[in-house]
Design a binder for these strands. Structure first.
Lengths: 377, 377
DNA sequence: TTGTAGGCGTTATCAT
DNA sequence: ATGATAACGCCTACAA
């Protein structure tokens, strides 16, 4: 501090006042004036790994703090072509697992220096309207947990916008995806349940064949066929609570009685199915009927339910999606990768997982007695 | 089309190819060249309400479509000082009502032309780290559903950043807020329950005195005092499922027996409390114990629970927050407003809402018999 | 290590 | 109604 630079070292507070008077924002140029350096020096101080002398850095930082200066991300992104924002498109229907996914994604992305610009979709049809905004806002890439048409994917490609699909797949394989292995999940579920002696399988799935639910179903059907069991009866659902109840009733009607086991496309549907069975129809679960869900959302673990279900490793999947997207963003090449995670089976207590002891045959018979016999199945 | 402008009407596809060759983005200037107009004309075409002739507009739009041109929001925001982005800070602990709030906010804001930049907070202490990003990204304003210190609020003010607190209040009154009337909610709850003959009130609240929970509690206490009933016994909780169970046990111990009614700070806590009472402790709800929640999240409505609770008018509150914020953004003045909404009482079936008939006195006595008598209360 | 100068893509102002 | 020109705030060669 003995010798000060000969440049105009204006008093910070005074300069700040003049900025306020002119009603403009604090810029790197202002900091430069106060610190007595050039504007580019200030810029370099805020770029990690740039070459600045220690003393300059100190002076600049002090001036910046005095002026409450913060770099303007919009201006930066204009020249760097990097906004450090990532679009996240997500369907509201993913409801209960939505907060967990969003929180995980956001955390993982922010660890990578990216922020989430949110595009929730009330209906899958909103994609078109929303994509326009995605292009406008100059995000660095997008993570999409919603249904995308081939045309949409093509547009991402055309615009060179990095894209990662989350728990969605497309026949057009050239897309980055992070998914749970739903095919395997379907197989696992059937294997476990068939081993316990279940024969008549019902499935409550998605209305439109959301590909992941489709995969799960395919896995279940495959495995049933392998085991020489009759194909499952399938009814549609909307992934919500009410669909569980209506699905159950639909299955009972379609199958002419209560099936041995119902596989639901989501926990919420399973819970709806469960509540309807227990409280409305007086069906004993798992005594008369086994119910399995999918997602292992928090309520599935509540004492009233203790659902048999499959847990997707959400934190790992979110991290994978974030990392994959950032990898694509950083490398200009069009690397395409598909990361697959195994779901973890949660035993719970809504499905009978062991063969019935022979002694229980009488009760079972009394139950079956209430059913209308069916020809095929 | 008989007479075309004498300007350089370059073939769109050719021009597009040259853009791709140079690996640069499509700009309004490119559109201008193809359309044979000036760059400013293009700009005007994308500004609603600007003065452009119909023919020019058509030519420009056609060229834009041909080139896949979309205005660059970053560049625009640089000059307009409007990013059309709104920061939403939200604590993960708001868990179950988080998706609903987020979806509503996002929808309402997008109707106002704003997009949500998401800042989820794993812990309330993360605010500091996160605020730095908020300043950087040049958002137009912020909606905060998290705990903010007076200093934080002051910084918003200092930076001229519009702010709306959601379901949070501060002693420092000069902040825009949208909240539910938690004081009234607390009073309502007590009124209804006291009318049914409940006397011994327990409360499972928040750990740190989140102001809204505090308000609710204050309302409850006020009303109890007015009615000449003993003050409630209060234990802390974390707003999660487990807190409901531990809170219940803590209350039983602290009160030397099962209280008449427990008011919980959230539905999830109430559900935890309920499950613990029914499945673990064998307490009949609402026979022996009444339980009330708060939020009316989806699971509270499930058949297994059918919770007595209070619903916050989330869509209206979200709309109010969005509108208020945008009003502040648009008017440069520092208008401060506090919008208060009434919660709606949901009867449900986990609280006894009518006086016990005298005949039931015997069963009631047998229940009370299991309790350790308490001196005061 | 530091400063100079040009450009990122748009909007706004001012003539015409 | 249209076009030239100057911002907006920053980054980045390039030269010193």
């Amino acid at each position: 501090m003995t010798k000060s630079k000969p440049t105009i070292q204006v008093c910070a507070t005074e300069h700040k006042a003049s900025i306020a008077r002119e009603a403009r924002r604090v810029t790197s140029y202002d900091v430069a004036i106060v610190a007595g350096v050039s504007q580019s020096a200030v810029s370099r101080c805020f770029k990690p790994g740039a070459s600045v002398s220690k003393s300059t850095h100190a002076r600049v930082m002090k001036a910046a703090a005095l002026l409450d200066y913060i770099p303007n991300a919009a201006a930066r992104s204009l020249i760097t072509r990097r906004s450090n924002m990532v679009a996240v498109l997500i369907t509201n229907k993913s409801n209960l697992y939505y907060p967990e996914l969003l929180a995980e994604l956001s955390e993982q992305l922010s660890a990578l220096g990216k922020r989430v610009l949110l595009f929730p979709l009330a209906r899958e049809a909103d994609v078109d309207r929303v994509l326009n905004d995605v292009w406008q806002f100059q995000v660095d890439g997008a993570i999409v947990a919603a249904r995308l048409s081939d045309e949409h994917v093509a547009e991402f490609e055309r615009r060179g916008m990095p894209l990662v699909l989350f728990n969605r797949t497309l026949r057009n394989q050239s897309v980055n995806t992070v998914t749970c292995d739903h095919l395997e999940a379907g197989r696992t579920l059937v294997s476990r349940l068939a081993a316990a002696g279940h024969r008549r399988f019902g499935i409550i799935g998605g209305t439109t064949d959301t590909t992941v639910a489709g995969e799960r179903r395919r896995g279940a059907c495959e495995r049933l066929a392998e085991l020489g069991l009759p194909p499952p009866v399938i009814v549609p659902g909307e992934y919500d609570y009410d669909s569980g109840a209506s699905g159950l009733k639909a299955l009972i009607e379609k199958m002419g009685g209560v099936p041995d086991v119902i596989l639901c496309g989501s926990d919420v549907m399973a819970i709806g199915c469960l509540d309807c069975a227990r409280h409305e129809l007086g069906i004993d679960v798992p005594g008369q009927l086994s119910v399995a869900g999918f997602d292992a959302v928090e309520p599935s673990n509540w004492l009233s339910y203790n659902l048999t279900t499959l847990r997707q490793p959400m934190p790992k999947m979110a991290a994978a999606a974030a990392n994959l997207l950032c990898a694509v963003i950083d490398s200009r090449e069009t690397l395409v990768e598909r990361r697959l995670f195994s779901a973890q089976f949660i035993e719970g207590a809504t499905a009978r997982l062991h063969p019935k002891p022979p002694a229980a045959a009488t009760t079972a018979a009394s139950v079956t007695g209430t059913r209308t016999p069916v020809a095929i199945m």
